[in-house]
Computed example of a mutant assay.
Amino acid sequence: MIKEIIVVEGKDDTAAIKRAVDADTIETNGSAIGESVLRRIALANERRGIIIFTDPDHAGERIRKIVARHAPGCKHAFLPQELAEYKGDIGIENASPEAIRKALSELRTETAEVAGEVDWSDLMDAGLIVHEQAAERRLRMGKLLGIGYCNGKQFFKRCTSFRISKDEFLAALHEMDAAWEDQA
């Protein structure tokens, strides 16, 4: 059984999690998270810790930010969009048990400290911002680093708050660029 409580968006996500692992969940019931749910999440974080595992879409990112503000030091699980999509619908409920287990095995913990390892110029040099293919490059790097897809500013924040080391960043960049060249 997973020690932490997994925060998901709804009942279908809970069902998908339970098919994959033995874990307890708290459902936010979508993006209109009430104060009572946020209090339960904060209590769960204090007592057992939480893992935020929201859908890899805009609404899921919004929920992730709200929950993370109320649960400092929580863990994050990220699932690539293509592993959570079925007939145009994107959600954890569409992911296979294997994809869910993999995402839960690659948790990231947010810290209040800034690691100072990866800086803004590293993102520019890597073509992750101010580049014609920046969005696609962030998508690929986010998968390799296990921090999901987001805009440039949020990507930088995740690199620092999840303490991505310069070596880890450069290794992922090398892997991405090698795969990119193979496709060309």
Rank of each mutant, 00 (worst) to 15 (best):
Ile2Ala: 04
Glu4Gly: 05
Glu4Gln: 15
Glu4Arg: 10
Ile5Met: 00
Ile5Arg: 08
Val7Gly: 02
Gly10Ala: 04
Asp12Met: 12
Asp12Asn: 14
Asp12Ala: 11
Asp12Cys: 08
Asp13Gln: 12
Ala15Lys: 15
Ile17Asp: 01
Ile17Met: 09
Lys18Cys: 07
Val21Trp: 08
Val21Ile: 09
Ala23Thr: 05
Asp24Gly: 07
Thr25Gly: 05
Thr28Asn: 02
Asn29His: 14
Asn29Gly: 05
Gly30Leu: 06
Ala32Asn: 13
Ile33Val: 15
Ile33Tyr: 11
Glu35Asp: 14
Ser36Met: 14
Ser36Trp: 10
Leu38Ala: 05
Arg39Ser: 13
Arg40Lys: 15
Ile41Val: 15
Asn45Ser: 11
Asn45Met: 12
Glu46Ala: 15
Arg48Val: 07
Arg48Gln: 12
Arg48Gly: 04
Ile51Gln: 00
Pro56Ala: 08
Pro56Arg: 01
Pro56Cys: 10
His58Ile: 11
Ala59Met: 06
Gly60Thr: 04
Glu61Tyr: 11
Ile63Trp: 02
Val67Tyr: 09
Arg69Glu: 15
His70Gly: 05
His70Lys: 15
Ala71Tyr: 06
Pro72Tyr: 11
Gly73Phe: 00
Cys74Leu: 07
Lys75Ile: 04
His76Val: 07
Phe78Trp: 09
Leu79Arg: 05
Leu83Asn: 06
Ala84Thr: 03
Glu85Phe: 03
Glu85His: 01
Tyr86Cys: 10
Lys87Cys: 10
Lys87Met: 10
Lys87Arg: 15
Lys87Asp: 06
Lys87Phe: 08
Asp89Thr: 09
Gly91Met: 00
Glu93Thr: 03
Glu93Cys: 05
Glu93Ser: 09
Ser96Gly: 06
Arg101Lys: 14
Lys102His: 05
Lys102Gly: 04
Ala103Ser: 14
Leu104Gly: 05
Leu104Cys: 07
Arg108Asn: 07
Thr109Arg: 15
Glu110Val: 11
Thr111Phe: 15
Glu113Ile: 14
Glu117Ile: 00
Asp119Val: 13
Trp120Asp: 07
Asp122Met: 02
Leu123Asn: 05
Met124Lys: 15
Ala126Lys: 04
Gly127Val: 10
Gly127Pro: 04
Leu128Pro: 03
Val130Asn: 14
His131Ala: 14
His131Lys: 13
Gln133Pro: 00
Ala135Gly: 08
Ala135Trp: 06
Glu136Arg: 12
Arg137Pro: 01
Arg137His: 10
Arg138Val: 00
Arg138Ser: 03
Leu139Ser: 04
Arg140Pro: 02
Gly146Glu: 00
Cys150Ser: 15
Gly152Cys: 11
Lys153Gly: 04
Lys153His: 12
Gln154Val: 09
Phe155Asp: 04
Arg158Asn: 10
Cys159Val: 09
Thr160Gln: 14
Ser161Trp: 05
Lys166Ala: 11
Glu168Ile: 04
Phe169Asn: 01
Phe169Ser: 01
Glu175Asp: 08
Glu175Ile: 11
Ala178Phe: 10
Glu181Leu: 14
Asp182His: 13
